[in-house]
Simulated assay, not measured.
Amino acid sequence: MENTVNLAAWVVWGGFALALVFGFVASKTNFCTMGAISDVVNMEHWGRMRMWLLAITVAIAGTSLLQYFGQIDVAKSVYQRPTLSWLSLLVGGALFGVGMTLAGGCANKNLLRVGGGSIRSFVVLTFLAISAYMALKGLFAQWRASVLDPVSIDLSRFGFKTQSLSDLLAGASGLPAKTALLVVAGVVTLALLGFIFKDKRFRGNLAQVLGAVVLGAIIVLGWYLSGHIGFGENPDTLEMTYFGTNTRTIESFSFVAPTAYSLELMMLWTDKSLRVTFGIATALGVVLGSLAWALYSKTFRLEGFASIADLRNQIIGATLMGFGGVTAMGCTVGQGLTGISTLALGSLLALGGIIAGSVATLKWQNRD
C-alpha cells in the first residue's frame, strides 16, 4: 500500500512541478491558442500560431519516441480508443471554440489570467467548472451520452486496435506498428517544422521558439510521469494500473475536466474517496506559475469586468467551454497539444472543430 501511495504522490507532485513551469513560461511568452487564431484572422500575423505549432511538433516527436521505445503506452489513453465519436468531437470542439472566443481565452488562458490577478477569469473558470461537471455527471451528461456519443464509428470492426494515424497506416499498408509510427510522426514533424521555420521573423524570436519547445516538452514529460513512473501494481487487484489520475489511465495536460474535478473536491472535501489528482494539481500549478511570473515581472493587477455585456459574454463563453471541452474530450491543450501528440484521428477532428468555431465567432464579431 505504501508503494501505491508513493506512486500517486510522485504523479501528483510531479504534475504540479511541471505545471508551475508551464504557467510561468506560458505567461512570459503570452502563449494563447485563441490569441494565435485571432492574430491570423484579424491581422494575418502567424507568430503565435507558429509558436503553438512548434509546441505541437515537439509534443508529437517526444511522445512518439517514448511510445516507440516502449516507455509509455498511449494506446491506453482516452484519445486512442477505437470508438471514434466523431459527432461529439466536432460539436464539442466547435462549441469550445465559440466559447473561448466569447470569453476571450481558453481554459488555459483563464488559468494564467487568474494567476495574474484577473477576477473576471476566476468567474469564467467557476462557470466553466460547473458546466463541465454537468457535462460529466449532471444534466448535460445525459444529453451528451444519449444524443451525441452514440453517433460513432467502431474502428475495431475494421481491424484497427486504436484510432492512431500510425495504427491506421499499419493496418492499411501492412507496415509493422513501430515502423508506421516513425513514418507518420516523421512526416508530420518535418512538415510542421518546414512551415514553422520558413518565417524569418519567427526564427529570430528566441523567446517564442524556446517557450514552444519547453511547453511541448512538458506535455511529453506529463505522459512519462503518469504513464511510466505512475504505472505499477495495484495491491488490491494485483493488476498493473495507473496511479494518481482521474481517468485511472495514462494522462498528460488538459484543463476542462480537471477544473470540474477541482470544484468537486472543494465541495466534497470530507469525502475520503476523493483525492488530489494529476489533473487537479496541474490546474493549480499553472495558476501559481503564472502568479510567479506576474510577481517577478511586476505585472500583477486586479482586473474585473468592463461592462454587463462583458459579464454576459464571459458567462456564456465559459458555459460553452465547459460543455464543449468535456464533449470533445479536451481543450486547446487537452486536445490541441496532448491529444494531438498521440496522433489520434479524434484529436484532429476536435482541434478542427475548435479552430472552426473560433474563426466563425471572430468573423461574426467583426461582421460590421
Rank of each mutant, 00 (worst) to 15 (best):
T247H: 14
T247K: 15
T247V: 13
R248H: 15
R248V: 06
R248W: 13
T249Y: 14
T249F: 14
T249E: 05
T249H: 10
T249G: 12
I250K: 13
I250Q: 09
I250F: 12
E251V: 11
E251Y: 07
E251M: 14
E251L: 08
E251F: 06
S252P: 14
S252N: 13
S252K: 07
S252H: 14
S252W: 10
F253H: 15
S254K: 02
S254Y: 08
S254H: 09
S254T: 13
S254C: 07
F255H: 08
F255V: 04
V256Y: 00
A257C: 04
A257E: 04
P258V: 02
P258R: 02
P258H: 05
P258K: 05
T259V: 06
A260I: 04
A260S: 11
A260Q: 04
Y261C: 04
Y261I: 05
Y261E: 09
Y261N: 05
Y261G: 02
Y261A: 03
S262T: 15
L263E: 08
L263W: 03
E264R: 04
L265N: 06
L265K: 06
L265H: 02
L265Y: 07
L265V: 03
M266Q: 03
M266S: 11
M266W: 13
M267A: 12
M267D: 03
L268F: 10
L268W: 00
W269Y: 08
W269M: 00
W269T: 01
T270R: 08
T270Q: 07
T270C: 02
T270P: 00
T270V: 00
D271G: 04
K272H: 08
K272L: 07
K272C: 02
S273N: 12
L274Y: 08
L274P: 05
R275Y: 09
R275G: 01
V276G: 01
V276A: 13
V276I: 14
V276F: 12
T277C: 01
T277H: 03
F278R: 02
F278N: 02
F278V: 10
F278H: 04
F278I: 10
G279D: 08
G279R: 03
G279I: 04
I280C: 03
I280V: 15
I280M: 08
A281S: 09
A281L: 07
A281M: 07
T282P: 02
T282M: 09
T282Q: 08
T282L: 04
A283N: 05
A283G: 13
L284M: 14
L284I: 15
L284N: 08
G285L: 03
V286E: 07
V287D: 01
V287N: 09
V287P: 10
V287G: 10
V287C: 12
G289H: 11
G289K: 03
G289N: 12
S290R: 07
S290F: 10
S290V: 03
A292C: 05
A292R: 11
W293Q: 11
W293C: 00
W293I: 00
W293P: 02
A294K: 04
L295K: 10
Y296D: 06
Y296F: 00
Y296V: 00
Y296A: 09
Y296L: 03
S297P: 07
K298M: 10
K298L: 06
K298S: 11
T299D: 14
T299R: 10
T299Q: 13
T299I: 00
T299G: 12
F300W: 15
F300C: 05
F300H: 09
R301K: 14
R301M: 08
R301H: 13
L302Q: 11
L302Y: 12
E303W: 15
E303G: 08
G304D: 13
G304W: 14
